[in-house]
Design a protein around this nucleic acid. Structure first.
Length: 575
DNA sequence: CTAGGGTTAG
């Protein structure tokens, strides 16, 4: 008994090693209970040592289920070892030792890590055979497995067949919805839980709901969840507060995010990172940098995502020198090796600032292989600065990666169009047609009374389409009086027979804005989220609209926010 | 016979 508590109290691997030789000498190690305690300490985090524990496990004369389970679990923590974990499970199953529900649970976990549907289904079949289907914990793991592999229907099926469902099972179901593009259903589920008396939302449920609100740009929903959190006294949970900060930031309300941040007493890296990223994406680059400095003064060390936020702050605000400095400091002073996101921010930073060749050289000098997203970022820079030569070269890289998408050709098209090369524009158009490149229409969403309305480019599906189009015509007229001229760029993928200017006025964001003007009283801020990048014309349109209609307008792009007010935009020339 | 397993925010 004392030996087991001794094992449990080991804080360092070296202590465990010392203990190991003692246990060997005193032959305590052949006691299965003691051996299990020792193995668990050595194989599981925080002291996890796979090779050492693997060796003593394989040397143990007659391993039992628990020892196997511990080893399988030990392998389930990382992608690299999870395959081995699954093999151990197979070994266990064929060894004649009877496996239990826990064995299946940790095996499923391994399958999730290696993303192997077929292995997971094998385990599922075994669970069925062994009659473990009444084990809630095991089924929750299984649900998470299907959800992670984007097999939503299979996850729902498991949920359906569960006899008892606790909060965690519900939470996994919500996660499954958000992961598989059913964000609105996730919120509906949250609602259902608040009204049920059997399964009330806990902190994790709230955090998942907030995540959904953030991705839908649904401020009203977010506030509703916030109220629920206050009512239930969940506001003291740090994970909930951190999610609130992220939600408000993602809805374009940095002020509210900051309020939550201020009231949070024990801020961790995630709190700071959320705040920094929120400030960054909303155009407060300098404040993001200040926050970063304050964070260090308070003794919180930054993580890799903190730098992603910080570098994107620099790129969105055009702070080139600062960005370069932080990028260097990151590995030099903080020991964080740059990842794709960091490199991407730097390419964006240099590209937006017009240092296109430097950006190109930067990509070539990277220690990782550039992915399509990286080249696309540079292509965006070429688009802003109208660099045809480099743009063509970048597209070649994308072709080489076999990753060209419709959006890439559209960007190239824009670049040609900007330089007035209409022949090339036609050529690209033809090429897209020949290659059969499908363009999915852009989408913009706007929330009204808790309901999210979606508009596509040239949309005719909305129930209020007639009013919306009439409103847009009226807005166009009003804006023209104020000097708005539709900018003819070739942004639109789907060319309509009636010509560009026509098509241009039916961009999805304009429809959403018209709907917003139509259905909210004057003075209400209009919040629109768009899945792609806002185009120059819509940007200009929004600027003038904010003055003429005296409205605040917040548009969330695929990467950032545009706050329009009094004829100006928060991002100035860096659109 | 013990113990040991599930969701989660940047």
């Amino acid at each position: 008994m004392t030996i087991i508590s001794l094992i449990k109290s080991c804080k360092h691997k070296s202590h465990l090693f010392q203990l190991h030789s003692f246990l060997l000498r005193s032959s305590h190690l052949y006691n299965p209970t003691i051996f299990l305690a020792f193995l668990s300490r050595l194989a599981l985090p925080p002291l996890r040592d796979l090779s050492y524990s693997g060796r003593i496990f394989s040397e143990f004369p007659d391993p039992n289920v628990s020892l196997y389970n511990t080893m399988i679990r030990a392998h389930s923590f990382s992608r690299d070892s999870a395959r081995k974990g699954f093999h151990l499970y197979q070994e266990l199953v064929s060894s004649g030792i009877s496996s239990n529900a826990l064995s299946a649970s940790v095996a499923v976990k391994c399958c999730t890590k290696i993303k192997s549907l077929c292995n997971g289904m094998q385990v599922h079949a075994r669970i069925w055979k062994d009659g473990f289907l009444s084990d809630g914990l095991l089924l929750t793991t299984l649900m998470d497995f299907y959800s992670y592999l984007e097999k939503g229907d299979d996850a729902y099926k498991v949920f359906d067949e569960m006899s008892e469902r606790d909060v965690v099972a519900w939470n996994v179901l919500i996660t499954c919805y958000t992961r598989n593009g059913r964000t609105r259903d996730a919120l509906a589920l949250f609602d259902k839980m608040t009204n049920s008396d059997t399964c009330r939302p806990d902190d994790v449920t709230c955090l998942l709901a907030l995540q959904a609100c953030g991705s839908l740009n649904s401020l009203e929903w977010g506030e509703k969840v916030h109220n629920y959190i206050l009512e239930q006294g969940l506001i003291n949970a740090r994970n909930v507060c951190n999610s609130l900060i992220a939600m408000y930031s993602r809805c374009g309300c940095v002020e509210k995010a900051f309020e939550v941040f201020k009231q949070l007493v024990d801020r961790d890296v995630i709190s700071w990172t959320s705040m920094i990223s929120g400030l960054a994406s909303n155009g407060y680059g300098r404040d993001a940098i200040e926050a970063f400095k304050q964070m260090q003064r308070e003794g919180i060390s930054p993580g890799d995502q903190t730098f992603t936020g910080l570098l994107s702050a620099c790129s969105h605000s055009g702070l080139v020198d600062e960005g370069r400095m932080f990028f260097q400091a990151m590995s030099r002073d903080f020991g964080i090796t740059p990842n794709v996101h960091h490199y991407g921010c730097m390419v964006d930073l240099l590209g937006r600032a017009g240092l296109l060749h430097e950006a190109y050289e930067f990509i070539r000098s990277m220690r990782i292989k550039p992915d399509a997203a990286m080249w696309r970022t540079l292509l965006g820079g070429c688009r802003i600065h109208g660099n045809v030569v480099l743009g063509e070269r970048v597209v070649e890289h994308l072709v080489e990666l076999k990753a060209q998408e419709a959006g890439d050709y559209i960007l190239l098209l824009n670049i040609y169009s900007l330089s007035g090369n209409s022949e090339k524009v036609m050529e690209v158009r033809k090429m897209m047609k020949d290659k059969g490149i499908q363009t999915t229409p852009a989408s913009s969403t706007i929330e009204l009374k808790g309901k999210v309305h979606e508009f596509l480019a040239n949309d005719v599906s909305h129930p209020m389409k007639k009013e919306v189009y009439e409103m847009l015509a009226e807005i166009n007229q009003q804006l023209r009086i104020a000097g708005y001229v539709a900018e003819i760029t070739a942004e639109l993928p789907n060319t309509l027979p009636k010509g560009k200017a026509y098509a241009l006025s039916y961009h999805s964001e304009k429809l959403a804005i018209a709907f917003g003007i139509l259905s909210t009283p004057p003075g209400t801020t209009i919040r629109v989220a768009k899945d792609l990048r806002i185009c120059a014309d819509c940007h200009n349109f929004s600027k003038i609209l904010s003055a003429v209609y005296n409205r605040k307008l917040v548009i969330r792009d695929r990467s950032r926010f545009h706050h329009f007010q009094d004829g100006r935009c928060s991002c100035n020339d860096y659109w």
